[in-house]
Each structure stands twice: as structure tokens, then as C-alpha cells.
Amino acid sequence: METLINDFSPGLFAVQTILLLLLIFLMVKFAWKPILGSITEREEGIQDALDAAEKAKREMANLQADNERLLQEARLERETMIKEARELKTKMIAEAEADAQAQAHKMIEQAQAAIEGEKKAAMAELKTHVAGLSLEIAEKVVRKELSNKDKQLELVETMLGEATLN
């Protein structure tokens, strides 16, 4: 302790104190303030840039999600449209088929009705014809009967045979 106090130089202490005070003052004013200010500014700049990048990324993600959603919707819409079109097509085909069938049916029926009519008419005509023929035959037969019995029979037979051939 004694040597310590003996070694202590008050003059050096005073000079050191003054110089250190001066040094601290000058360094703070001309060096540390600008340096720390610039470093803080730079750090804040970096932080801001990072934040902005993060924000942009999030926005990008949102945008992408939106796009995805829109795409999904469009896909769904397309599918429903295709489905509807397909249904329409089958329906149209079915309808056309039914129509055609109905038409055909109708035409066949008409044809059948016409045929029936013709047939009836023909039958009627045939009946009248046969009746006339029968009457004629009968007239002839009667006339022949009156002349020759055998001949009459023969005639009837011939006539009938002819009639059948006719």
C-alpha cells in the first residue's frame, strides 16, 4: 500500500484526467455519434427491407391462393358446363328418337288404315261383283235349266270353276 501511494503521481493523474476528458468529448462528438448513428440507420434499413420482403412474400402467397381459388372455380364451372351439355345432348337424342318413332308409328297406322279401307272397298266391290256374277250365273243357269238340265249343271260347274280361277 505504501509503495502504491508512493508511486501515485498526482501530476500524471491530473494530466490523464484532462486528456481522457478531452478524448471522450472529441470521440463522442466526432466519432461515436456518427458511427453509431450510421450503424443504427443501416440496421433499421436492413430491418425495414426484411419486413418489406416478408410482407411482399405474404402478399404473394395471398395472390397465389387467390389464383388457385379462381382456377378451381373455373375448373368446376367448366365441368358443370360440360356435364350439362352432355345431358342436353342425350336428352336431345332421346327426344329425336321418340319423335321419329312416333312419326313412324303414325305413318304405319295411317298406312294400315288406308290398306284396311282399300281392302274393305275391294271386298265390297268384290261382293258386288260376285253378287252380279252370281246373278248373271243364276240368270244363265236359270235360262239353261229351262232348256237342258244336264247342261245347266255343267254350266254351273264350269262357271264356278271359272269363278274360282278368277
Binding site: 478524448l23 470521440m27 466519432a31 450503424i39
Partner: peptide, 12 residues
């Protein structure tokens, strides 16, 4: 020290 750090401050 003064010389070094004032130079550094000027660089910024």
C-alpha cells in the same frame, strides 16, 4: 484513435 474512428465515421 481519433484519426482511425473519425475516418471510419467519414466512410459512412
Amino acid at each position: 484513435m481519433f484519426f482511425w474512428f473519425v475516418r471510419l465515421a467519414k466512410q459512412y
